[in-house]
Design a protein around this nucleic acid. Sequence first.
DNA 1: ATGTGC
Length: 475
Amino acid sequence: MQRVFAALAREGLHVERDGRVYRVRLKDVADAPAGEVLLPDDFPIEAKALRQLAGLAALRHPAGGGVTTVRASPDFHPGDAGVAIGSIVETEGIVVPAAVGTDINCGMRLHVVDLTAEQLLAKRDVLVERLKGDYFFSSRDLPMTAEAMQGLFREGLAGWLSAVRRRPLGQLARCDLDQLEREIDRVHLGGGLDGDPRWAPEDIVPEEGVVRDGGLATIGGGNHFVEIQVVEEVVDRARAWQWNVRAGQVAIMIHSGSRGVGKHVGALWRDRARGLWPKGQKFPPEGLFSLSLADQPEAVAGYMQAEATAANYGFLNRLLLAELLRQRLRELFGEVAAPLVYDLPHNITLPVEGAAKRWITRKGACPAGVEQPVIIPGSMGAASYLLVGRGSPQLLGSASHGAGRATSRFEMGRRGRETGDLGLAGVDCITLREERRIEEAPAAYKPIGPVVACQVEAGLCDVVARMRPLMTFKA
DNA sequence: ATGTGC
């Protein structure tokens, strides 16, 4: 697989690949930093996605600060909120709420389970029935005290956990809280950023008493899922052993985010950024309003705290989705070990380490720091990968967050009605919405193999293990 | 992406 970096040239913006030149017309990009796209050979590249990337590159705040670097990961594709999915952007002196959007702390979580696929599939039907109850019919019982919700929003998983330890209610009383505590260091950033409950939707942060938040432990729509997999191949035996991953074992992979809380925070700050834009100044492309440290330091701090608040909720959402599944596995198989391998966000703004006033926003890009676990899911029915990051600067210490959509949901709907081969044979997808099967069918996505291979070849990460799906839950 | 929204 050949590695291809294509500069978005300043004059006219073009990408040259395989002898073909892709041109994108865009004004205002004259003094923007060049963007780079990493793609396998023969991959389609959408003009809309390039236009969006160029729009990001051109961002400047009239009071000072702007975007310094943009990169695009191999699963790069157009987004509907003005930012292409797979964008990695470094800013200096500004933050851009719309760049991360409303799906704050969308991310991945991976557990391994001390069962073989055969053992698990022997109880497939009863497991599916119970999980349908948990994930689709809200039969779960997860009452949260005011202290737990406030601790969560303020500090993340550690704050939540210490409150739950004081008063474990409902199904939380059946969780192994010591294990959850030990697993916090396998969550990126310790599963906690400095947030504040005042940024969360009011109805889920009681002053006192208990709330039953219907958003917690829910999968969400689109490409989000809970998947039971089997480790098909271990490539890096030493690291796999160290991370508890064994060939032939069952794994649990979760792709979800901060649900309504991220939507609340993202929409609130998108609107605030527009409202705070200096009067009389030309609007930025695609509604990408920024907040400048130069004249709005409290707004920058406020947004970062609000984003952190939603991010903390996303960490707990994934933890609880996994916890429900671990409880069902214990019911059916006894005390079976199902340790966390890693949990990490691929939709988040983080400060650049060791540099004041600089941030990296990853929009559909997985952090891939040195020796750090990287989780790249394939599309429904396809393989997923556990990798180890190498901290390469090429994509600012990032990797892709998936295979990348190749065909729009709308187009897939049309193709589905015309009964094309959507690659769904043999896929065990449990969903209440039939249209998901088509919208998220394997044929809607690029093949994960080349997407992973080109990143390995580029030195972004190395494969530790490959998993294949056994059953996928999609809301 | 979103207890989607015209």
